[in-house]
Design a protein around this nucleic acid. Sequence first.
DNA 1: TCGCTAACTGAAACTCTTTTTCGTTTATGA
DNA 2: TCATAAACGAAAAAGAGTTTCAGTTAGCGA
Lengths: 130, 130
Amino acid sequence: MDLGSVVGRMRGRGYKATPQRVAVLEALGADQHQSMEELRGRCPEVGLVTIYRTLDLLGRLGLVRRLDLGDGPRYELAESHHHHLICESCGDISEFEECPLDVERLPLQNSGFEASSHSLEVYGRCAVCQ
Amino acid sequence: MDLGSVVGRMRGRGYKATPQRVAVLEALGADQHQSMEELRGRCPEVGLVTIYRTLDLLGRLGLVRRLDLGDGPRYELAESHHHHLICESCGDISEFEECPLDVERLPLQNSGFEASSHSLEVYGRCAVCQ
DNA sequence: TCGCTAACTGAAACTCTTTTTCGTTTATGA
DNA sequence: TCATAAACGAAAAAGAGTTTCAGTTAGCGA
Ligand SMILES: [Mn+2]
Ligand SMILES: [Mn+2]
Ligand SMILES: [Zn+2]
Ligand SMILES: [Zn+2]
């Protein structure tokens, strides 16, 4: 999803496409899974409060996902369904799209639970840290 | 794992089995996935700082797991490997032990990543909330 | 059983993150 | 260009968790 269509979508819903919001979007595009500190470093001209408010807005628009992986929130553009490999040694986070969930084995038949989404994180050691 | 063996394990490692720690353990035993607020309510005679310190200690001993499911940390006794069904309507959290992960489909062969654990949460609507 | 002491507790102070407030500024449509 | 609802950001407030430190105690050894 390119920046132009995001701007269009915002205006369509009555939100303004301000320079600050565009700056936050560009910061988000620079890398996945960034902490607030990293995002701030990528758009230092934007006030902290505005970054929080923009992340909240983009979250409500379904464009940004907030991750709670254990040491503080991280944010990523919600492009496509994927999961994470997290290195417990260096903290590196990588992604994979192939979903290893065996839906047959989800215990939903009898429970009456209707699943709509899921999150999966695999922890271990990355190639570098072996 | 019963309370007596936990006390024994603590003493074996040089930790004291204080009334406060026992109270926190009993609070944890009353229900899974409790918030700090719920835990406090279950052992109001224990100071807040001591609850935090006890949860930290039990975590290091591998007896307690901290969950980050989206609205504040929750704590549970780490009895056995299991996953969670989370109702996005009423917030109810239920557990299942049957692991629906198809290990064959984990993209680890070529990546050099060595997996040691994983967490999986399924979101949706529980039977009551349909 | 008693006394010693390292371990522990908890009130208060502190730190860090996030939210709220509110006066000023601005993007956008008419 | 103008009006105005939307947005910005500095400052203050709120909230969650941590550190400090003086007093207390569990548990071991005599
Ligand atoms: Mn990701
Ligand atoms: Mn659980
Ligand atoms: Zn690594
Ligand atoms: Zn429900």
